[in-house]
Design a binder for these strands. Structure first.
Lengths: 341, 341
DNA sequence: CTGAAAGCGCTAACAT
DNA sequence: ATGTTAGCGCTTTCAG
C-alpha cells in the first residue's frame, strides 16, 4: 500500500528532511547541488506533486485567480467577446502557473450565491470583474470585501478601483469622423444598452465626433440590447428616417443591421455605410465585410491579469486606470475599401 | 486591529468551542437550536466565511472541478460550442456550490504545462476533459493519475472511462435519410477533421444513412477543419461535382458553405440542400436559415458534471457511457420548411 | 449536545 | 546547507 506522497515521505526516501525537499520544490537557492539532484530524482520517480491546499493554507496564497462574469451570460456567450477575454486571461495565468476559476452568475444573485463564494478566503488570490453595468452592486460588494480585484471596463462612478478598459469613446468618435469624411450627411446610431458604461461611452463618443464636424443624428437613434435581433429591428425602424450611414455599437448588432438593410432591398455600402464596434466577428462572416472599430480584447485580458497580480503582491497600491486604444479597420461596409485591409 | 476571523474567534464571540461553530457551519444535526441561533448571529454580523484551503486540507476535498480544453482553442473559441458547454457545467456546479476551474491548453503541452497542473492534489476534486482527438495523450495521462475524470465526447479506443457524448452517428444518419427523402440523389459531404472522434462518427453516420437508401457520395467529399473558411473552400471545390445536397459536419463550416454556394450564383435550397450539425448558430444568422442536427450541448455539460460528482464521491464506479440523442431541426436550407419549425 | 485534541501537508522562522 | 519547530484554519475522532 503506497503511503500518501508528501514532503516527509519524499524526504525519507531521499534521506533529507522535509524542509530540504520543500526548498528544492520551490527552487530556493541554498541547497547543495548534490542533495538537490538526489531529491529531484526521487520526485521524478515518484511523480510527487505538492498538495495545493496545504500550500495555500501555509503560504496564504492560492495561485488561483477568479474571473467573474455576471448575469445575462446566456446572451453574452453567443458573443465572441468573452471567449476572447478568457483566452487572454488564461494565457496570462498559464504563463505564471496560476489557475483560472470561472464564476458565471445566473439570474439574480440570491443568497449564498456566487457573489459570496467569490470572496471566500483561501479560494482565490484575487478576482477580475467584467461586464460592468452602471451602479453594479458587485463592485460595491467587492470593495467591502477584503479581496484584491480589478475591473474590466469602466465602473460608472469614479470610485477608486483598478481597472482596464478600452477607449470606447475615442473609437466611436473615430467612426463618426470617418463616416463624415466619406461624405455621409445623415448618420444614424444603433446604441448599446445605456445601463452599461461601454454603451454610454460609445454613444457619447459618436455624438461628440459628429458634432465636431457639424453633424447630428437628430432622431436617427435607437438602442439595442447587444443581440443580433435587436440590431436588425433597430435598423429596420431607422430606415424610415433615410439615413445614409449608421454606427452600430457592436458587431453582433451590426450583423442584424446588415440583414435589415438587405431585407429592405437597400445596398450596403451603396445606400448606407455601416461601421460597427468590436472587431470580433470574422470579416468573412458578412457580406459586405464590416468596417469596425477594433478593440484588443485579448490584450485587455492579459493586462488585467498582470495588473491583478501586482495588486495581489502589493506592487500596485494606487488605483490605476489602464485604457487601451482602439483602431479603425476599414473594410467594404462603409463604402471605402482600400487595398489590403 | 481586527483579528483574523476564524472558527476559534467566532466560537469565542458566541461562547462556544470551534467544534460547535464548525457543526453549525456545516449544518450538522446535533446542535441545540438555541446555540445554533447564537452562532449564526455571530457569523452573520461578522460576515465570517470558512477558509477554503484549510477546509480542503482537513476534509480532503476542494469543492472545485476542473474543465480541460486542450489545444486549438484559438480556433475553437469562435465556436459557440465551448461557451455553451461552459454554461451548462457552470450551471451544474453553481447548483451544488462548487467552483469551476478552467484549464485552457496552449499549443503543445510542454513540460510543467497545464497537463500536470490539472492533476495537482488538493487543487480540484475531479476534471472534465473535452475535445477528444484520436489517440489523445491527455486521456492516457489522466488514467495514470489518481484523479477522477469524465470525458466529453468519445475517446477513440474503447478504454474504460466515464464519458458523455451525443449521438453523432445517429444524427448524421438522420441527415442522410432526410436529404434522401427530399429526393436528393447527388449528396455531398463536408466532413469534420478525421482526427476527432466526432468527425469520424458524423462521417460514418452520414455514409451509413446514405447506403441504407442506396445512395453514395462517390467523390463528393471534402474535409474541413471546423472553421467557416474551410467550409467555404470545401464547398466551392465540391461545386464542380454538381451535388444537389450537402451535409456539413458543423454549423460554422455550413455558414462558409452557404457563402460559397451564393458566390457561385447558385441557390440554396433550390439548387442545393444544406444540412449542418450542431444547431448552435442562431437560425437568423444565415439566409436561408439552416437545417441542423441539433446537439444538446448545455445538457451534456450538466450531465458530465453530475457524472463527475458521482465518480468523485464513489457513487459511480463502473465506467459508464452516456449518449444524448440529437434532433433534426428542419428549416429552409434543405428545401422543406414545415410551418413553425 | 458540546469540548478537547490530533492531525491534514505545507511554509517559514529559527537553530545549528 | 540542512534540520527542527510552530503554526495556517479546518474537520474529525473521541470523551464526556
Amino acid at each position: 500500500m503506497a503511503r500518501r506522497l508528501n514532503l516527509e515521505e519524499i524526504g525519507r526516501r531521499a534521506g533529507v528532511s522535509r524542509s530540504t525537499v520543500s526548498r528544492v520544490v520551490n527552487g530556493e537557492p541554498h541547497v547543495r547541488s548534490e542533495t538537490k539532484k538526489r531529491v529531484e530524482a526521487v520526485i521524478a520517480e515518484t511523480g510527487y506533486r505538492p498538495h495545493a491546499a496545504a500550500r495555500s493554507l501555509a503560504s496564504n496564497n492560492t495561485g488561483v485567480i477568479g474571473l467573474v462574469i455576471p448575469s445575462a451570460v446566456e446572451t453574452l456567450f453567443d458573443d465572441p467577446y468573452f471567449g476572447r477575454l478568457i483566452l487572454g486571461i488564461s494565457a496570462a495565468t498559464n504563463e505564471v502557473d496560476m489557475t483560472l476559476a470561472l464564476f458565471l452568475f445566473g439570474e439574480e444573485p440570491d443568497e449564498g450565491s456566487i457573489i459570496y463564494r467569490v470572496v471566500t478566503p483561501g479560494l482565490v488570490d484575487g478576482v477580475i470583474v467584467t461586464a460592468t453595468t452602471r451602479g453594479d452592486p458587485l463592485i460595491d460588494h467587492m470593495q467591502g470585501a477584503d479581496m484584491p480585484f480589478v475591473v474590466i471596463g469602466r465602473p460608472d462612478s469614479a470610485r477608486s478601483t483598478f481597472c482596464v478598459d478600452v477607449d470606447n469613446r475615442g473609437g466611436a468618435r473615430a467612426a463618426a469622423l470617418h463616416l463624415a469624411a466619406l461624405g455621409r450627411r445623415r448618420p444614424a446610431l444603433i446604441a448599446a444598452p445605456s445601463n452599461t458604461t461601454a454603451g454610454v461611452d460609445r454613444r457619447n463618443g459618436f455624438l461628440e465626433g459628429l458634432s465636431e464636424v457639424g453633424l447630428s443624428v437628430e432622431n436617427r437613434i435607437r438602442e439595442g440590447d447587444w443581440t443580433q435581433g435587436s440590431g436588425r429591428e433597430a435598423m429596420s425602424l431607422l430606415l424610415t428616417e433615410r439615413p445614409d450611414a449608421v454606427f452600430v455599437a457592436s458587431d453582433r448588432m451590426a450583423v442584424g443591421a446588415l440583414r435589415a438593410i438587405s431585407e429592405a432591398g437597400l445596398n450596403c455600402p451603396g445606400d448606407i455605410s455601416v461601421v460597427s464596434f468590436d472587431g470580433l466577428v470574422p470579416p468573412d462572416l458578412t457580406m459586405p465585410r464590416l468596417t469596425s472599430v477594433v478593440q484588443p480584447v485579448t490584450e485587455v485580458g492579459k493586462r488585467a491579469t498582470r495588473l491583478l497580480r501586482s495588486v495581489i503582491d502589493g506592487t500596485s497600491t494606487t488605483p490605476e486606470h489602464v485604457v487601451f486604444p482602439t483602431r479603425l479597420a476599414v473594410r467594404e461596409s462603409c463604402g471605402s475599401a482600400p487595398p489590403g485591409s
